[in-house]
Simulated scan of single mutants.
Amino acid sequence: MEIEKILEELGLSRYQAKTLLALMRCGEAKASDVSELSGVPRAKIYAVLDQLADMGYIDKIPGRPARYRAKSPERVIERLKYNTLLEYSRRLNTINNVEKELFEELKSLYSPSEVRTKELIRVVSVGEPSERETRLLYRQAGREIDIISKSFEYYPKVRDELTKASDRGVEIKILLIGKEFLEKRGIAVQRGITKLIRSDLDAEMRLSRTILPLRGSIIDPSYDYRTGKAIFVVEDLETPLYLRDAAVTENPSLVAGIKKYFDLIWEYESSPLE
Rank of each mutant, 00 (worst) to 15 (best):
Y46N: 14
V76N: 15
L254W: 00
R90K: 14
A141D: 05
V170N: 03
E114P: 07
V34T: 05
E267F: 00
S149K: 07
R139L: 09
L49C: 08
S32D: 09
L85R: 00
V123R: 02
D236W: 08
K179C: 13
L207H: 07
I197F: 13
L20H: 05
S72Q: 01
V123A: 07
Y242L: 06
N96R: 12
A247R: 04
M205L: 11
E4T: 11
T194G: 04
K195R: 11
E8Q: 13
S253V: 04
K229F: 06
R42L: 13
E131H: 01
T163M: 13
I258F: 14
L106W: 03
G27R: 05
R25S: 11
I61L: 15
L212E: 13
E74C: 00
E36L: 12
L241D: 00
T210I: 10
E180I: 06
I265D: 08
A43K: 12
K30P: 09
E104F: 15
W266M: 02
E104D: 14
D245Y: 00
E114A: 14
E4V: 13
I45E: 05
E267L: 03
A141T: 00
I177P: 10
R226H: 00
G257N: 07
I218G: 08
F262L: 03
V248G: 00
D200S: 15
N97I: 14
I45W: 11
L182P: 13
P221G: 09
K100I: 08
Y154D: 06
P221S: 15
A230F: 02
I197V: 15
L136I: 11
P272V: 13
F262Q: 06
I197L: 15
L120I: 04
S208M: 04
E131K: 03
Q140V: 01
A47V: 14
E204W: 11
L137K: 09
Q190L: 02
I193P: 08
T194C: 07
D236Q: 06
E114C: 10
K81W: 05
G257T: 04
K18E: 05
I174H: 05
Q140N: 06
R75L: 13
K150I: 14
V48A: 13
K195M: 03
I219D: 00
V98Y: 10
E269D: 06
K18W: 00
S38V: 07
D236G: 10
A188V: 10
S166T: 11
R185N: 14
P73Q: 01
V48Y: 02
E267C: 04
I77V: 11
N96G: 06
D220L: 02
E133R: 01
S271L: 15
G127C: 04
L175Q: 12
Y68S: 05
D59R: 07
D263Q: 02
V170E: 06
V123N: 08
K5A: 09
S113L: 04
G56L: 04
E153W: 05
E87C: 00
V189M: 03
